[in-house]
Design a binder for these strands. Sequence first.
DNA 1: GGCGATAAGTTATACTATAACATTATCACG
DNA 2: CGTGATAATGTTATAGTATAACTTATCGCC
Lengths: 173, 173
Amino acid sequence: MKAFDTAETSFDSHTHDHRRCVRSALQTAEALCQQHGVRLTALRRRVLELVWTSHCPVGAYDLLEMLSKDQGRVAPPTVYRALEFLLANGLIHRIESRNAFVGCPHPQEAHAGHFLICRVCGAAAELSDPGIEATLDQRAGELGFFVEAKTVELRGLCKGCRARRPDGGEQSA
Amino acid sequence: MKAFDTAETSFDSHTHDHRRCVRSALQTAEALCQQHGVRLTALRRRVLELVWTSHCPVGAYDLLEMLSKDQGRVAPPTVYRALEFLLANGLIHRIESRNAFVGCPHPQEAHAGHFLICRVCGAAAELSDPGIEATLDQRAGELGFFVEAKTVELRGLCKGCRARRPDGGEQSA
DNA sequence: GGCGATAAGTTATACTATAACATTATCACG
DNA sequence: CGTGATAATGTTATAGTATAACTTATCGCC
């Protein structure tokens, strides 16, 4: 597996052309679902698009509200089922420490998502680092533990937010 | 920092003398709170003791129910406030992927908790591995990210549960 | 004993997630 | 086509997790 990260695009939401992210994500999703013989229905596609509105993890009830703007009234299971599908097919990741969801930028390759999450701008950047994987797997292995799923979430300040407010978000004195 | 893990004691709840774990945790907590000039009140102490009933992460509402057995009726803020205190003082950890809490076996040293969580027996073992820390910090650092908090949770099968049911918990055929 | 600060009690409510069952859409096959 | 199996969505209700806001009690200190 090759190293991979999205810190540049994720923590730079203001300047990069985010529509490209979205378009690309949807295209990849279409192709991948086709290839796997699963159905990216209009609803699922729309939820994926909504998750991709930004690089910030978005909550299920936020999605619910956004969805309600299109369709009329929407109930929780609708969005949770779409999320379940997207998770199962690796198109999004769940951020456990926020109860929220974020688009996966490289769903082609099966992988656990490792995240840097900025507490100021809220963006989540995905890492995929063979070093991290290897270290974790090795340590678990030594203890006889068989790993099925990994959650790695680092919270703090991204480069940009650090530069803008070195104190980390307090009002400036 | 030295390497550290609790896989033996955590994944071996049936055979080890768990009362010793509890007693030791409470003693350490007393000492530490004294030392830091914070108050381990009867309530907080009791909640810590309840969290330590086992090596399995326990939910806030489970604690609520247990507490109600002692005291009469107890409302959520009571237990959440105690948990908040215990978290702030490093006496317990929060397991994000379960919305649950587990006692910290070495609260003397400030550290992020890294966990192995068995999906069969439910126990959570804490790792503290300089290698993991270093790898994560380094990778974040390269991307200009300042890490304030880490969540590392590996879910799967512990050694014992693997031996008992290689399939991982399905009914045997 | 009175005062300020910290902790706990109380009530209400917000947020997150799923169970269970009814209905509709899709697709393979005859 | 039609029809029946399967998958997807709609609907209603409820379970599970967490916090806001305000009141009362307790502690430590002068």
